[in-house]
Design a protein around this nucleic acid. Structure first.
Lengths: 186, 186
DNA sequence: TTTGCTACCGAATAATCGTTCAGTTTCTGA
DNA sequence: TCAGAAACTGAACGATTATTCGGTAGCAAA
């Protein structure tokens, strides 16, 4: 792994453990086995590393969400998306903690955040069609999106904090609850 | 308002705006109109102020949640609790942002967090009975609690970020979605 | 009036921070 | 083989930090 990658990964690890301002460049340099000066060879400043991590994580967010969806059945598709995001977070706990606690203002500027919207257009369309076709309840799109996302986050929390195993039935229930939350209650 | 209160309030304001480590004691002293030394007369160190804020916010959490509940009707009671927490967060945006971003590890230690569990016993019992009496779905208590809480947080987010007005219908829908999420689907 | 205590002050301290830069090593193409 | 570019180094710098501490002001009991 090249030094730039090592710097990014080390910064990510330390930052979710200690917080941005509690993570000195000297420590990043030491644990990444590079000199402090090397960091400034690849990055303008500390904040730029944080922004690069942010962009890296959101890069293929849309792709992750929409991967391997079943061809039909809106509910089945939603459940697959839910699991996609859940598994991504469980498999990348650093990414999860980063977007939850570091990837927010005032650490990340609004300009940097706004750029990520692009990656979510297909997800937006999916939910928009769901509302139009009466698969989903007649609610503001933004509300549906936020609840759906929030439910995944809740589930990931319980799993990562070890409060629930989230195996088998627990996971099935978590998905079912999320679906009942947003589905069209006919 | 006495100086100790002023120090706490000022620290709370600055900390949700800038983050803990980006908020120097000198600034707290200046904006609270006290000397730096005075802060250390009332508090052992910076972290103790943060912990005091944390305890202050969670102190009457249980009380806020259970206030003015209707006498009967499980669903009505839940909706009242939901609104209680929602209104508390909307009315105290500083408290909301604090518990979401500052009131978590590694800033707040696990010992300090664990002490707050006491305030939630009545809430726990409410949900526990809801599951037993089949008002709520047959799911792990922790899962129901986390989803219910997460839904309020999602709604508060949308409101505070100005993405939804959350007046009238929006709010009704948000509560309905949350209820459909946890209710017993017979 | 004296004594002791609490509230309060802010310059001084020691540690630590992000960043710079002069210099060395390594790589690359001619 | 060699020159120029790119990668890399870490001591040094100036700024900022949390905390300390010697001292002042006000008050209440003796």
């Amino acid at each position: 792994m090249d030094k730039k990658q090592r710097i990014i990964i080390t910064m990510l690890e330390l930052v979710v453990k200690q917080g941005v301002h509690a993570t000195p460049m000297s420590q990043v340099a030491r644990e990444a086995n590079v000199a402090v000066g090397t960091i400034y060879h690849y990055f303008e400043n500390k904040n730029q590393i944080i922004e690069e991590i942010y962009n890296m994580i959101y890069q293929d967010y849309g792709v992750v969400l929409m991967a391997n969806l079943p061809n039909e059945g809106f509910q089945k598709q939603y459940e697959a998306m839910w699991l996609n995001l859940y598994n991504y977070f469980i498999g990348n706990p650093l990414a999860f903690q980063f977007v939850e606690f570091i990837g927010v203002p005032p650490i990340i500027s609004k300009e940097v955040m706004d750029k990520t919207v692009v990656h979510f257009s297909s997800v937006r369309d999916f939910f928009l069609n769901g509302i139009k076709d009466k698969h989903l309840r007649d609610a503001p799109l933004r509300l549906v999106l936020q609840y759906a996302y929030g439910n995944v986050v809740s589930a990931v929390w319980l799993k990562t904090k070890g409060e629930l195993d989230m195996e088998g039935d627990d996971l099935k229930t978590a998905i079912a609850m999320s679906w009942d939350c947003i589905k069209n209650q006919r």
